[in-house]
């Protein structure tokens, strides 16, 4: 109780004076955090890990990364181990709520802040106790940006091969916009086929599926990919077909950019958030929670629409996107004055 009072007081002082005084909750401590990921491969995930790592290094935080390699049981175990090892904060990326809620509750009950990316847990307010954040890439907005790009390119009328991945939180959010906003508004858009091939290694399957559809129908005006792993397969299928069907998608990777630059007439645009910023913001939110400052229950990053027409002639990678889109490069979300003191 006394400790809590001191923390609260310290936080209050920090806020009132707007000084760079480091809150007592984090001051002089060697903080240890765990980043538990459902999987850790691919550009996107590596950039996420690197973002979290470099932000952690800034503040002298010891960050251990646990890659569950698609094994949810291992993921739950990783969270529980972090609780047992008395980590100061736990960052999570992806996973399925059903499999992890128990472990997350344990962490929260032990007073450990849990900052979750692309997942949410049905935890009551008392257990959450202001220490649970559910972050996303603003999937609703990414859906809207990418789908509106498609609507614009088709002048609101045409046959679309649509892709959804059901029962995965981020892709479900993107789909809600399509179903609830785009289709009822732009009634000229007709879905001629929906491809859903799950989350495990969808690229080759998506390629085969679209090849099938492109050889059996001649009236496709655009293809939509709710996730870039599908888009890569779709891209291959469209390029191989020799047709010029525009492709719109969500998420981006270096590989996606290379493809967009090779055939900008095919892969037109993709809505995305810089994954390294997600990692950075997760660390900041954890720090704020440890400092006893108020953190939001939900937070969405700011996505941008990467258009192949915007890309320069020379090859670019994701880090170059900052030059083209200022919002891509950095985010000052949840940066507090005391954090720069902590850096030193």
């Amino acid at each position: 109780m006394k400790k809590l009072m001191i923390t609260l007081l310290a936080a209050l002082v920090a806020v009132v004076t707007v000084s760079a005084e480091v809150p007592a909750g984090v001051k002089g401590k060697k903080l240890r955090m765990a980043l538990v990921k459902e999987w850790g491969t691919g550009t996107h995930m590596i950039m996420h890990i690197n973002g979290a790592k470099s932000e952690a290094a800034k503040y002298g935080i010891d960050l251990s990364v646990i890659d569950a390699n698609h094994n949810l049981a291992k993921m739950a175990e990783g969270i529980e181990n972090a609780v047992i090892n008395k980590m100061d904060a736990i960052l999570i990326s992806h996973g399925k709520a059903d499999a992890l809620t128990g472990a997350v509750k344990k962490a929260l009950q032990a007073g450990i802040p849990v900052i979750v990316f692309d997942n949410d847990f049905a935890v009551d307010e008392k257990t959450a106790n202001g220490k649970l954040v559910s972050m996303d890439q603003y999937d609703l907005m990414m859906g809207l940006l990418s789908q509106m790009a498609l609507v614009q390119a088709l002048d609101g009328k045409g046959n679309v091969i649509y892709n959804r991945v059901a029962n995965v939180p981020p892709t479900d959010k993107r789909h809600r916009i399509w179903e609830g906003a785009i289709l009822p508004t732009y009634t000229g858009i007709k879905v001629v086929n929906t491809i859903d091939l799950g989350t495990s290694n969808p690229m080759p399957k998506a390629q085969t599926a679209l090849e099938t559809l492109l050889t059996t129908s001649n009236n496709i005006d655009a293809v939509y990919a709710v996730w870039d792993e599908y888009a890569k397969g779709f891209y291959n299928a469209i390029v191989a077909s020799g047709k010029k069907i525009p492709l719109f998608s969500v998420d981006i990777s270096d590989q996606d950019l290379a493809m967009m630059q090779t055939h900008p007439e095919v892969w037109k645009a993709s809505a995305a958030v810089n994954p390294s910023l997600v990692g950075r913001v997760q660390i900041r939110l954890a720090l704020k929670a440890l400092a006893g400052e108020r953190i939001p229950r939900y937070y969405s990053m700011t996505p941008i629409l990467v258009k192949s027409a915007d890309l320069p002639k020379e090859r670019v990678s994701m880090k170059d996107l900052a030059k083209l889109y200022p919002a891509w490069g950095s985010s000052d979300a949840f940066v507090e004055p005391w954090m720069s003191t902590l850096k030193k």
């Binding site: 550009t43 995930m45 590596i46 590989q255 290379a258």
Partner: peptide, 10 residues
């Protein structure tokens, strides 16, 4: 290195 290998990769 944990990433796909493709044309024009960084």
């Amino acid at each position: 290195d944990g990433s796909a290998i493709y044309n024009f990769m960084p």
